[in-house]
Every structure is written in structure tokens, then in C-alpha cells.
Amino acid sequence: MPETVFRTEGVTKVYDTGNVKVFALARVDLALYSGQLTVLLGPSGSGKSTLLNILGGLDHATEGRVWFRDLELTNLPDRQLTRYRRDYVGFVFQFYNLVPSLTARENVQLVTDVAPNPMPAAEALELVGLDHRMDHFPSELSGGEQQRVAIARAIAKRPEILLCDEPTGALDSSTGVQVLEALRDINDRFGTTTVVITHNAEIRKMAHRVIFFQDGKISRVEQNDTLLAPSEIAW
């Protein structure tokens, strides 16, 4: 059994919106393992993003406990959470969130400038196949290219974990496949523990593990013995 990277115990998240209390997560127990690519699958509002935010140190659970290896994230203050994100976590968002005033290379350098052991920005962009578009601004890149820059930015600091929230959500199928290939490649090459949120069931086929979410709870967990290459996936 590979080493456990994340562990949660009875994690609950309640959003208090006035008179109504919404249980985004209800007593979730979970373990994620080193080097694996895990897909969190489920419909909108099933709690997968909430979990990802808590794992990524962007949000606190209302109840329960969360560990990253031996580091308990549960009540970590803001300053240490920032440190945690900076040193260990790479994020990829649905809408890329690139800085429009910086070129592709500069967007990656944003991270490499502050990370302890980064790879050169050019190398990161080469890994996602964008070495020829390095000096372009986001507005000069296609959606797929922008997302690949975002991936390059996320992996350039050689993070232990890569958290991707709907990375193909804003992309068409063929562009989406390119992005997934980049994620697959990173996972293979560096053994980066990768968590991908999607509501696209096809994507589960490329994952080592698939965790299904329903109404803030884990409904089931699947283990894939044979992984499909992203190019074999279509939607």
C-alpha cells in the first residue's frame, strides 16, 4: 500500500446561509495515497470542491480533522496555511486564473520565484508543450493553452500534490484531452499526487482511484487496475 498523503476524519462543512444550514460535507473519512491520480466525481453541489478547498488549505472544516502527512491542517492559522500551499500544493483552476499582465513565462515565474526548489519556468512550459508560446500574454493564448500554462505554473515548484478543480470544465473535448495528457504526464514523470475534480464521468478512466460523491458524502470508491490514456477518452 502506498504512503498516505491526506487523511480526513469525520470532516464536516456547514454553510450557514441565514435560516438555512447547508451541509456541504457530512462526516467524510478519506485517505489519499502518494503518487496516485485520484478523480473526485460527482454532480454539482455534492461536496467535492469543498473537500478540495479544505485539503488545499483554502478553507477550514466545521468539524472533523485533516492531515497532510504528519501536518494537521485542521486548525492551522492563516500564515502557516499560506506556507503549506506555497511549499507543497499546486493548484489548477477551471478558469485558469492567469495574471493577464504577465506572459506565459512570467506567470510561471510568479511561482518559481518564491518556491524553494523550482524547475526553470521554460522547462515547466516545455513539459506542457508550450515552449514556443512562452512570451505570449494570456489574451494571446487559446483556452487550452492558457490551462496548460496554469498547469506549468502549478508544477513548476515541483509540488508534492496537485489539486485540479474542473481543469477541463471550460474546454472542448480535444483541448481537454491535451490538458489531461499534461496532467497524466506530470503524474507519471514526477509521481506527483494528483487530485482531479470533475463531473465528467469519462475522465475517471485515467485515474488510479475514483471517489464518488453524493450529497456531501462519499457514495463509493473505485480502484482502476488498467488506466486509459487521455487520448483514448472522449466526451
Binding site: 500564515r79 499560506t82 500551499r85 493548484f91 486564473n97 510568479l110 511561482v111 518564491v114
Partner: peptide, 16 residues
């Protein structure tokens, strides 16, 4: 706002 929040997520401190 969005840019700055992204940077915070990427691990930039409040001061940065």
C-alpha cells in the same frame, strides 16, 4: 481581486 486571490492560493503571503 481575482488576480490577488489567485496569488494567495499559489502561496503568496498577505504582504507580498
Amino acid at each position: 481581486a481575482r488576480e490577488l486571490a489567485s496569488l494567495r492560493i499559489l502561496g503568496f503571503t498577505r504582504a507580498e
